[in-house]
Design a binder for these strands. Sequence first.
DNA 1: TATTGTTATACTCTATAACTATA
DNA 2: TATAGTTATAGAGTATAACAATA
Lengths: 145, 145
Amino acid sequence: MSSRRTDPLTLEVVDLIGTVVTRYHEEYEQAAAQHSLTGAQARVLALLAAQPTPMRRIAQSLRCEPSNVTGIVDRLEARGLVERRPDPADRRVKIAAATEEGRATARRLRDALDFAREPLAGLSDEERTSLRDLLRRMLGVTDGA
Amino acid sequence: MSSRRTDPLTLEVVDLIGTVVTRYHEEYEQAAAQHSLTGAQARVLALLAAQPTPMRRIAQSLRCEPSNVTGIVDRLEARGLVERRPDPADRRVKIAAATEEGRATARRLRDALDFAREPLAGLSDEERTSLRDLLRRMLGVTDGA
DNA sequence: TATTGTTATACTCTATAACTATA
DNA sequence: TATAGTTATAGAGTATAACAATA
């Protein structure tokens, strides 16, 4: 197995994946910055634009401590992009939800994320199918649809 | 071009790439944390283990302001993983270099990065070649070797 | 008692601006 | 005067611990 680790082909694929990761993050941060958002704020806003979410679950989604979410949502709320709502079923819970303006910002943000879209446009349908299948296997995805 | 943007195949590939990016980062941070390093510290240490580098160039590599590098190298230096050396050619320049212990840590860190290695082991040579070529085209890489 | 969200605290990363020592 | 590195400062993300309200 160590032969596979140092084999030039594997190393190049690893390197290419590293490049993908780097480029993806740079584009994401850049797109967020264009709307004066940090990466974390953009991720939370995207999540809340998809569906209102309790603070606790936001933390799970971000894989960080719940205490951190307070500040991130505070800053989004201060800009009118997000609001906190009570949970009728459990008065301990606060549900964060994107406002109309927040959803609009999230939409523009997603449109700006050309990363995977533009370079993928250079591939044919067959090639994209092939890429999808390889990535699926690499990630251990059983199926998709 | 907007038809390609919303086509299900492209969306799934975009989603898979997002998963790759997320998983890669988590593994990287986790591997760094196992050595009590932050992500930024691990990146700088890996860079310096490959070759001694002036502070200015470290900043370019990290795509951050030079002032930030001071603190990162300070912390690595305080732990004996890195040292600053003068540049004989230009007395303004300080060259940061990994110590023997720093190189050993960098080596262990790299070994811990199973992310791309392990899942790639499930692919055949042909599949990895195919994946390499698709990633190359996606990234606009003319060639490699 | 356990859980949700928050506050308080400390550390790191980040950018900006001003400083120093060289060039 | 321009450049390399540093310092000072401030904002943001992160983890830990302690707390109030609620379950």
